[in-house]
Every structure is written in structure tokens, then in C-alpha cells.
């Protein structure tokens, strides 16, 4: 149970911070696609007989780079949809090869926070540190290129390379978070809290902090409720994400 709280909290912090940029850059689809595509990695890992996190660590950067490089030419939304589908198809193939029980597949898709081990917590902590360091390093160019790409380019920011780095960052977050909240709902945590935070605060740093706070509350609530009811944690995360968003829209509408 302690492990679950720790792992869940780490995921919430990273998702809140990285999610701030996901929403600012309008990268919702990529944030959904990278975790979903990484499912192939988890399924593949079970074919080879290695821990799922190894498969995630290999496949999520592949998905991120494929989306980034193929989408550079044109129509990045189409490319994202196709890369995600291709990876999921591969996942379906791997699944047909394994003798994995449906409940374990289900856990990968929808999360199983209560099964987190101590080693996984340490791994999560290391990845969290790396992700936060990356965000701190890229903060200013990422912020500028998100809101005014042309201006950033004129100042010498290599926006295309930055976009690719950001996708890889998403892959790191995916590897970290998928074992906890699952491939399908990982992105709810990356989009819901930051989208809601925007209604309450005006500056970038405050929005990031609020987003982390909301994500933490969401995860804690979801873990507690999942523990009480034995229902899947993904259910509570998904519903809470939407509830925060609705609350934020109401606040924003009342202010206007």
C-alpha cells in the first residue's frame, strides 16, 4: 500500500508538470498516442519473458520518435493515429503469442497500482528525477516555442528538435506511469489536471504547481477509492479528470 502511494504520487507530479506543456502545445493526441502505442512494448515483454517496464522503455521512445519524425512532413494528426494503430496492432499480435491471462492484459491497459513493488518505486523515483530535470532544462525555450513558435525560431531555438525532445520526454513519463495507471488512462492524468489548473491561475509556474496539486489529489483519491471498492483505479482517475475539467470550465465561465 505504501508503495502504491509513493508510485502514484511520483506519477502525479510528473504528469502535472509535463501535462502543463502538453496542454499549452496542444499535444493532447500525442500524449494519448505515446502511452497507447507503448502497449505493444508491454505485450512484447511478456512474450520474451522480461518485466513489462523494459518493453515500455523500449517501445515508448520508438513511438515518440516515429510520431515526431513522420509527423514533421505534414498532417501530424494522421501520422499519430496511424503510428498508434500500427503499434497497437503489433501489441495484438504479441498478445496472441502469449499465454498471458486476460486480467494481466487488463492491468496493463487500465492500471494496477496496488501491485507496485519496492524496486519499481525506486525506478519510478529515478525516472521522475530525470523527467523533472529535463523540464527544468528545457523550460524557457519550450514555453516560448509553445506560445510563439516563429519568435522562438528567430531567437535561435531549434523548434523541430525541441518538439522531438518533448515527445521523448513523454515517452519517459509513459514508462514511468503506465505500470501504475495503465496505457489508456495515463493521458487523462496528463491532460485533465493541467487543463483545469488554467482556470484558477494566470502565470506559467503557478499553473504548473496547481496542475501538480490537482493531479496529486486525483491520484490519492483514486488509490483510496480503488482500495476500498476493489474497482479499477483507471475508473476513478478518468472520472476525476473529467470532474476537474468541468469545475474549471464553470469557474472560467463565471469569471467572464
Amino acid at each position: 500500500m505504501t508503495n502504491a502511494w509513493l508510485a502514484g504520487s511520483l506519477v502525479a507530479v510528473v504528469a502535472g508538470v509535463v501535462g502543463f506543456f502538453v496542454v499549452l502545445r496542444g499535444a493532447t493526441f500525442a500524449a494519448h498516442g505515446v502511452p497507447l502505442a507503448s502497449f505493444a512494448g508491454a505485450a512484447g515483454a511478456s512474450v520474451v519473458g522480461v518485466p513489462a517496464v523494459v518493453g515500455l522503455a523500449v517501445f515508448s521512445p520508438v513511438a515518440a520518435v516515429a510520431i515526431g519524425l513522420l509527423g514533421r512532413r505534414r498532417r501530424s494528426d494522421v501520422v499519430t493515429a496511424l503510428v498508434v494503430a500500427a503499434m497497437l496492432g503489433l501489441g495484438a499480435l504479441f498478445l496472441s503469442w502469449t499465454v498471458e491471462y486476460a486480467s494481466e492484459i487488463y492491468a496493463l491497459l487500465f492500471g494496477e497500482v496496488l501491485g507496485v513493488t519496492g524496486t519499481e518505486v525506486w525506478l519510478s523515483a529515478a525516472l521522475t528525477g530525470a523527467a523533472l530535470l529535463a523540464v527544468a532544462t528545457l523550460y524557457r525555450p519550450l514555453l516560448l516555442s509553445s506560445v510563439a513558435g516563429e519568435v522562438a525560431e528567430a531567437r535561435g531555438v531549434r523548434t523541430a528538435r525541441l518538439e522531438l525532445l518533448f515527445l521523448v520526454l513523454m515517452a519517459v513519463v509513459t514508462t514511468l506511469a503506465v505500470p501504475v495507471v495503465g496505457t489508456l488512462l495515463m493521458f487523462t492524468l496528463m491532460v485533465g489536471p493541467p487543463a483545469a489548473a488554467r482556470a484558477f491561475v494566470r502565470s506559467p509556474l503557478a499553473a504548473m504547481a496547481a496542475s501538480v496539486g490537482i493531479a496529486l489529489v486525483t491520484v490519492w483519491l483514486a488509490i483510496a477509492l480503488a482500495y476500498e471498492t476493489t474497482w479499477p483505479i483507471g475508473f476513478f482517475v478518468g472520472i476525476a479528470g473529467a470532474a476537474w475539467y468541468v469545475l474549471a470550465r464553470v469557474v472560467a465561465a463565471r469569471r467572464r
Binding site: A136, Y139, R140, P141, L144, V151, R155, V157
Partner: peptide, 10 residues
């Protein structure tokens, strides 16, 4: 961001 928006780091 006009002061040093292109720089890395905090």
C-alpha cells in the same frame, strides 16, 4: 521571455 527565452536551464 524576451530577456533570455532561448536559454536552457532555470
Amino acid at each position: 521571455l524576451g530577456l533570455d527565452g532561448e536559454r536552457f536551464g532555470v
